[in-house]
Design a protein around this nucleic acid. Structure first.
Ligand code: MN
Ligand code: MN
Ligand code: ZN
Ligand code: ZN
Lengths: 137, 137
DNA sequence: TTATCAATTTGTAACGATTACAACTTGATA
DNA sequence: TATCAAGTTGTAATCGTTACAAATTGATAA
């Protein structure tokens, strides 16, 4: 039934729900640590032995085009993915490398300087040391 | 004299002022469109025919370590560089591909959720259509 | 001046994430 | 059951970046 739920969701967003696409979207929803293509591929390869890394790339590209996922380049070495497409900030701990989501008051940022610009997307990336790592040192 | 001025600036920041380093820093200061390594290399190669792209990479790495420049990954395809190291936002126009700086009220963003985190760096990337492109369409 | 030596620069090779592409598979439709 | 477009797969190519060893530079001291 779960399978069917995700299938409907994809269909409602104009995406033909193949087995691979359902599994990849399900993984993104259930693993909110902003996984990379590599991580997603490795995690699903046991369930879907025939899975190709290209399919993971293709599928995420479709998700982004259809607006049900977004890409996060918070490290310049690898792109991460997020099924949460509402505007929110990301904090990366330089110690444990974990990525935290945080709420942002969108209005307060939209600066005076951009008042005549059309802003379609906004990314906020913060870097530092998280609460947990601070307390463990 | 200009040469000497940049030389002193680099020295004051713990960087030995070689000819290449002076030229690269000078270029960064005078070309505020957030150039890539490729752009910097191509621009300086006529003045310095022996310049190596590796030197551009090495030099920018030193600048970043010493805190007189920063890297901007506003497109995931290439890294850009900025001699303005104070916290500010970047807007990329999807039409003309120009990158605009904008002021950000730092305090207003520092969200409640991060109150126990140490934040060392923050990047704000906005995407959309700039004022000029809006008016020309 | 000349020798010495570490820092810097250079060119080339290697790396690795991503993309291109052609062959194969799947599944809906007639 | 045949057809055919859409989706998947594996491999090769691409390209920005990094590793590395050799060459050059420039400061210091004999
Ligand atoms: Mn997120
Ligand atoms: Mn800037
Ligand atoms: Zn941490
Ligand atoms: Zn524009």
């Amino acid at each position: 039934m779960q399978e069917n739920y995700f299938g409907d969701f994809l269909r409602n967003n104009g995406i033909k729900p193949s087995f691979q696409r359902i599994k990849i979207y399900e993984y993104l929803l259930q693993n909110k640590e902003h996984p990379t293509v590599e991580t997603i591929y490795n995690a699903l390869n046991s369930q879907i032995p025939t899975l190709s890394k290209t399919t993971v790339y293709n599928t995420l590209k479709v998700f982004i085009e259809k607006g049900i996922a977004m890409a996060i380049t918070i490290d310049d070495t690898e792109v991460r993915f997020d099924a949460d497409v509402k505007v929110h900030g990301h904090f990366k701990c330089e110690h444990c490398h974990k990525i935290y989501d945080f709420e942002v008051d969108v209005e307060s940022i939209s600066s005076e300087a951009l008042k005549d610009f059309d802003v379609y997307d906004q990314q906020m990336f913060f870097y530092g040391v998280c609460k947990v790592c601070k307390n463990n040192s």
